[in-house]
């Protein structure tokens, strides 16, 4: 971020200076951003009604990424923050990626070379059979 977009008053109140001309003229229309977020919410809710899995994934998770970006950029003012804060947050997300890469092969698959997760296989088969038979519609019925 530029120093001109970053004000610091006598009380140590260091703000991001949105809207004030002396702060660099950055002026975010928050209501407009909010309107865009609500429009995106409507799209993410409407997506599954098309019944196409790929569309549901894009409208649900693709739009979630866009919404998170808009909030982080415009409401949290990450675009005006020191760069190392962005790197800090990206590092944390990357660590989650490492965790996911390490753990997911044993969870997403129920068998592999020289191993079988019998309990997971049985539970999945049981639950799918129950759902196909119309059970589990209400919690008590499925017990």
């Amino acid at each position: 971020m530029t120093e001109t977009a970053h004000t610091h008053d006598s009380h140590g109140h260091d703000s991001h200076g949105h809207g004030s001309p002396e702060a660099g003229g950055h002026d975010t229309n928050y209501v407009k951003i909010w309107g865009i977020l609500l429009a995106l919410l409507c799209v993410s809710v409407a997506g599954p009604f098309l019944g196409i899995k790929a569309v549901t994934l894009v409208t649900a998770f693709g739009i979630a990424l866009v919404k998170a970006y808009l909030v982080a950029k415009n409401f949290m003012h990450l675009n005006l923050e020191k760069r190392y804060i962005v790197y800090l947050l990206i590092t944390m997300v990357a660590l989650m990626g490492v965790f996911y890469a390490g753990a997911s092969p044993d969870v997403m698959e129920h068998h592999g070379r020289n191993w079988v997760n019998v309990a997971a296989q049985q539970e999945t088969a049981r639950a799918l059979a129950e759902q196909a038979a119309g059970g589990g519609e209400h919690g008590q019925e499925a017990h």
Binding site: T91, M92, V93, Y100, M108, E109, L128
Partner: peptide, 28 residues
Amino acid sequence: VWWVIASEIVIFGGLLGSYIMHRIGHPE
């Protein structure tokens, strides 16, 4: 506060990451 948020990313990220891998592994 940014450090709090960074640590929260790991807390919620771990939980949601675990959910996603289970969601993919368990079609039910």
